[in-house]
């Protein structure tokens, strides 16, 4: 069990990790592929104090090195679900489960928009976890909607276990097996009466029984049922505490402005308050 699990490896998450480590708490940072990080995709930053003309990847690399040097552990993966238990949390990461006393959500901006037909078919063909549900679709036709950098890897996995995979994304994927057909399309719709029957991709229709929609991270409200939002963002107070005791949030997922310095500042507060929360748990526990 870790003291603090940070979900998201961007500026807010790494800042929270550094702060919690400075207060002697064990920390794991769980995040997806670095290429999905908003900062990684930023060409040039001129408003982060003390740095001018720095590139996004350069700054991110420094943040990562700092967190590493402070002893924050790092885990690559997509957190699928967070469940509060008594004085601790379970976090499902692919096929594994982690435990932590407190959680910092630093998932970045999560595209709130679902595909038409997605919510209606959840559990009836729509899945967010290839590792979990892939086996249920062996020898059947599935579509992978690739919205994250590691999606081709998951599509390859589905192919290896015997699914008939079609990969759909707006851009040519990197690392997709050549025997998986790729359909370039941006406008998608999930079709089917009760269960999934097809995916409509731009003009064409791809028949399938399963749709794996792979985004860089899950929407916070799906990650943790009962989490209060304000519009598309997580509601927090001045301590970066959410409405769920022991859960804090920082960075782009809490709202505008979507800036590195704001994320780092909020991460600092969230890491500090999460560490305090754990201190209290241990003292009273």
């Amino acid at each position: 069990m870790y003291d603090i699990a940070v979900i998201g490896g961007g500026p807010a998450g790494l800042s929270a990790a550094v702060q919690a480590r400075a207060r002697g708490r064990s920390v794991v940072v769980i995040g997806g592929d670095v290429r999905d990080n908003a900062l990684y995709k930023t060409e040039r930053i001129d408003n982060y104090l003390g740095f001018t003309g720095v590139t996004g990847p350069e700054l991110l690399e420094r943040f990562e090195a700092h967190a590493r040097a402070m002893g924050a552990e790092r885990r690559e993966g997509r957190v699928l679900s967070v469940m509060p238990m008594e004085n601790m949390f379970y976090l499902a990461v692919g096929s594994e489960v982690e435990q932590a006393r407190a959680v910092v959500l630093a998932t970045g901006v999560v595209q709130a928009g679902k595909l038409p037909g997605e919510a209606e078919h959840l559990g009836a063909g729509v899945s967010y976890c290839a590792t979990c549900d892939g086996m249920l679709y062996r020898s059947r036709q599935v579509v992978v909607v690739g919205r994250s950098a590691d999606a081709p890897r998951e599509a390859n996995y589905l192919k290896e276990i015997g699914c008939q995979v079609t990969y759909v994304s707006p851009r040519q994927p990197e690392g997709l097996r050549p025997d998986i057909p790729f359909v370039q399309a941006g406008k998608l719709r999930v079709l089917g009466d009760r269960t999934v029957e097809a995916v409509q991709a731009d003009g064409g229709t791809i028949p399938c029984e399963g749709v794996f929609i792979l985004r860089p991270s899950m929407a916070p409200a799906e990650l943790l049922p009962g989490l209060e939002l304000e519009g598309n963002y997580i509601r927090v107070d001045r301590s970066m505490a959410t409405n769920v005791p022991g859960v804090f949030a920082a960075g782009d997922c809490t709202g505008l402005p979507l800036q590195v310095s704001k994320a780092v500042g909020e991460g600092q507060v969230a890491g500090h308050r999460a560490a305090e929360y754990v201190d209290t748990l241990i003292q009273t526990g």
Partner: peptide
């Protein structure tokens, strides 16, 4: 199933 993290989490 054993390969499913959320299932393990629900187990208790």
């Amino acid at each position: 199933a054993s390969w499913c993290g959320p299932c393990k989490m629900l187990s208790p």
